[in-house]
Design a protein around this nucleic acid. Structure first.
Lengths: 183, 183
DNA sequence: CTATACAGTACCAATTTAGTACTTTTAATG
DNA sequence: CATTAAAAGTACTAAATTGGTACTGTATAG
C-alpha cells in the first residue's frame, strides 16, 4: 500500500529522539518510555538498527545505544534499508529481477526503475537531523539551489559536486497534470 | 514495505496494454490472455479502474473497456489512487491525521508530509503513454529542463508555467550522501 | 431469447507485519 | 565474585493485508 512499515516509522522516531541528546547512551527502556512504545518493540528496532550499523550498543549495566554517525549523516533511506527487509523498489519486478511474467517487452519495468530512483533520492535527501531541528526548515522546503547548502550538510563524505546544479527537491516540481488532488 | 500492491502493478500493465490499441474495446478476457493474468483478477482491477473513471465500460455482448482519457493524461499516481485503498502517504500519520502517539511535537510528521509530496510528484510525472512508447525516452530520463517539453505533454490542463525552471526529475538529484547504495 | 460480457458482493487462503516471550551474553558495581 | 542491568538472539503467536476466486445479477448484441 505504498507505506513504510510501522517498525520503520518507529525507527525514525527513535533515531530522532536519540539525536536530540547526542553522545549519550540511551537504553531501550528509556526510549520506550519517552516515545510511548512497547519495550520489546523498541528493543527489536534497536537491534536491527544496530545490525545495520546505524546505532552501536554498549552491553551490560548502564549500557545502551548511541548513534554511530552524526544525525546529519543518517538519511531516511538508510533507515528504510535497515528496517524493511525486502530490497528497495516500488514493484516486485523493479526491486528484484526476472519476476515479470511476459508481454509488453517490459518497457514498464524501465519506468519503474526510474521512478524508484527518484523516490529513493527524495528519501536520501532527508536526514535524522532534519527531523529534529524545529527551526531549520527541511531540505525539501528550503531552496537548496542556492549554492550554499545548509552548513550541517557539509561534513558528509562523497558529496558529488558534479550535480550541484540541482540539489533542491522543492525546486523540483515535475509538470503536474490533470487531476491534481490533495495528498 | 514501500511497495505498491500487485493489483496496482497489474493496473499499469492493463492500462499500458489498452493504450497500445487506443479507441478499441478490450474485454477483460482479452486482456487477461494478453497479459497472462487470471480473468477474475483482471476483471477486478478493471472494475475498480472503472469506478475511478480511468476506463469506461460497455456492457453486453461485444462489450469491453476503453480508456476514458488519452494515455498521456493518466499518471501512475492516478492508478495508485484508484487501486490502493488507503489514502496516499508513506506513513500512517502522514496519510491520515491525528494518529501520532506523542512526544517530539511531531516535527517528524511535517517532514513526512514533505517527502510524500515529492514522491507523489514523481509518480505524477510518469504517464501511461510513457510506459508504452518504446522510442520516446521516459520523462524521468529525458532532460525536460530544456524548455521544450515532449509534445504529448502539451495538452494536459494546468501546466503551471511558473515552475517551468525545474520540470525535470532527472535533473533533480538531491545531494546524495554517505553510503550511497544500489537500488 | 440466448450468449457474451460487465457489476457487485462476499469469501477464503496466503503472506506480511506487529508484537511478545524466553533464554543467553556482557559488563558494571558493591 | 555475586548480583543486577541491559543488550543479543531465537522463536512464536496473533492480527492485518493482499491476492485470488466464486457466485449472482444486469445489460446488450444478434
Amino acid at each position: 500500500m505504498l507505506r513504510i512499515s510501522k517498525l520503520t516509522d518507529y525507527g525514525t522516531l527513535i533515531l530522532a529522539h536519540m539525536a536530540g541528546l547526542p553522545g549519550r547512551l540511551h537504553s531501550a527502556a528509556e526510549l520506550a518510555e519517552a516515545l510511548g512504545l512497547g519495550l520489546p518493540t523498541v528493543s527489536k528496532v534497536l537491534k536491527t538498527l544496530g545490525r545495520h550499523a546505524l546505532v552501536s550498543s554498549q552491553r551490560g549495566a548502564h549500557g545502551g545505544y548511541v548513534l554511530t554517525r552524526a544525525a546529519e549523516q543518517i538519511t531516511v533511506a538508510d533507515i528504510i534499508d535497515a528496517l524493511e527487509d525486502q530490497p528497495f523498489g516500488l514493484t516486485e519486478c523493479s526491486a528484484s529481477a526476472g519476476v515479470c511474467s511476459m508481454e509488453s517487452d517490459c518497457r514498464i519495468r524501465d519506468n519503474w526503475l526510474r521512478i524508484n530512483t527518484v523516490v529513493r533520492q527524495a528519501l536520501q535527501s532527508v536526514t535524522v537531523a532534519d527531523m529534529v531541528h524545529p527551526d531549520a526548515p527541511s531540505p525539501l522546503a528550503r531552496g537548496l539551489v542556492s549554492n550554499e547548502p545548509a552548513s550541517h550538510r557539509m561534513h558528509g563524505p562523497a558529496r558529488l559536486g558534479s550535480r550541484a546544479a540541482a540539489t533542491s527537491l522543492a525546486a523540483c516540481i515535475p509538470t503536474p497534470r490533470a487531476d491534481d488532488q490533495e495528498i
